[in-house]
Simulated assay, not measured.
Amino acid sequence: MSSKTGKPLKRRRNTLPLHVIAVIVGAFMVAPVVYALLGGFKTNSELSGNPFGLPSTWVTENYTDVLGSASFWRQMWNSTFIAISTTVLTVALSALAAFVFARFAFRGRELFFTLFTAGLMFPFAVAILPIFVLLRAFGLLDNPLGVILTQAAFGLPLTIIILRGFFRSIPGEIEEAATIDGCSPFGFLWRILLPMARPAIATVSVLAIVGSWNNFMLPLVVFSDESSWTLPLGIQQFQGQYASDTARILAYLILAMVPALAFYAIAERHLVGGLTAGATKG
């Protein structure tokens, strides 16, 4: 065997354990989704007798009944509005802060940056009581702004870290050339940095949207009016209402997951690149 043939073979043998682990982890992640998807097409009796097999008769009523429910679409709208608003606010504020921390030198810069990143050390659940008191004092209970502002505040630390790393990786010569051409600092951010930072912006947008979409505790604390509920709250209410109808609950879960999974699938190719952007330059 030649050395040229032996090297690729050896490389494949070295990466085989990693591939096996990836397949096993992927199977553990996909199996519950496939189980719920197929379970939504079964009757409850078939789900009990044949939980893992294909449906003998595909029951589409479980999905069509959910899609025909006005409350489902209202909760879908509430979740979409809150997720998009949270993402826009988080990315906009984080981009401005990351730009300052990355491209400006001033006394106390690292101290302020450390204060921002310290927010990663405080779990959301620990702060839920003071958040509730604060939102009540500002009259933001039963108001989407109560969820949007809070989620944006907790999303700032990680978003600033990712965007700052990318902004710092941009060569200073580009900024100098833009300044010579009469570009202001904000113009440099808007016209040059942000277009170049699309992978990083896509990454933080995915994280913000999926995090907001799956958030259960904060909407539970903020919203008492059923018309303001998001999908996670709707799932809990639906599960309580149809406790014995497991197949319909599974259909509801799948339909609630579709928008977030679709957005993630579209933006997935930017995710890894955005997370590693700026990792090699400081």
Rank of each mutant, 00 (worst) to 15 (best):
F154G: 13
F154N: 04
F154E: 02
F154Y: 14
L156V: 12
P157V: 00
P157W: 00
T159Y: 06
I160S: 05
I161D: 01
R168Y: 00
R168M: 14
R168N: 05
S169I: 02
P171N: 06
G172V: 04
E173R: 10
E175P: 08
E176V: 01
T179F: 12
D181S: 11
G182V: 06
C183H: 04
P185E: 01
G187Q: 07
R191Y: 01
M196R: 02
A197W: 00
A197K: 00
P199T: 03
P199S: 07
A200H: 04
I201A: 02
A202I: 05
T203R: 08
T203K: 09
V204N: 00
V204C: 07
V204I: 09
V206W: 02
V206M: 15
L207G: 03
A208V: 07
A208P: 08
A208C: 15
A208I: 04
V210H: 08
G211M: 12
W213N: 10
F216H: 13
L218K: 09
V222Y: 09
S224A: 13
D225M: 13
D225V: 08
E226N: 13
S228M: 15
W229D: 07
L231M: 13
L231G: 07
G234I: 03
Q237V: 11
Q239P: 07
Q239T: 14
G240S: 12
Y242C: 06
A243I: 09
A243C: 03
S244M: 08
S244L: 11
D245G: 02
D245T: 05
T246P: 01
A247P: 11
A247I: 08
R248M: 14
R248C: 04
L250K: 09
L253V: 13
L253E: 05
I254W: 02
L255N: 06
M257P: 01
A260Y: 07
L261N: 05
L261V: 15
A262V: 15
F263W: 09
Y264M: 13
Y264Q: 12
I266D: 11
A267H: 07
E268P: 00
R269W: 11
R269Q: 15
L271C: 13
V272M: 14
T276F: 08
G278E: 06
A279K: 10
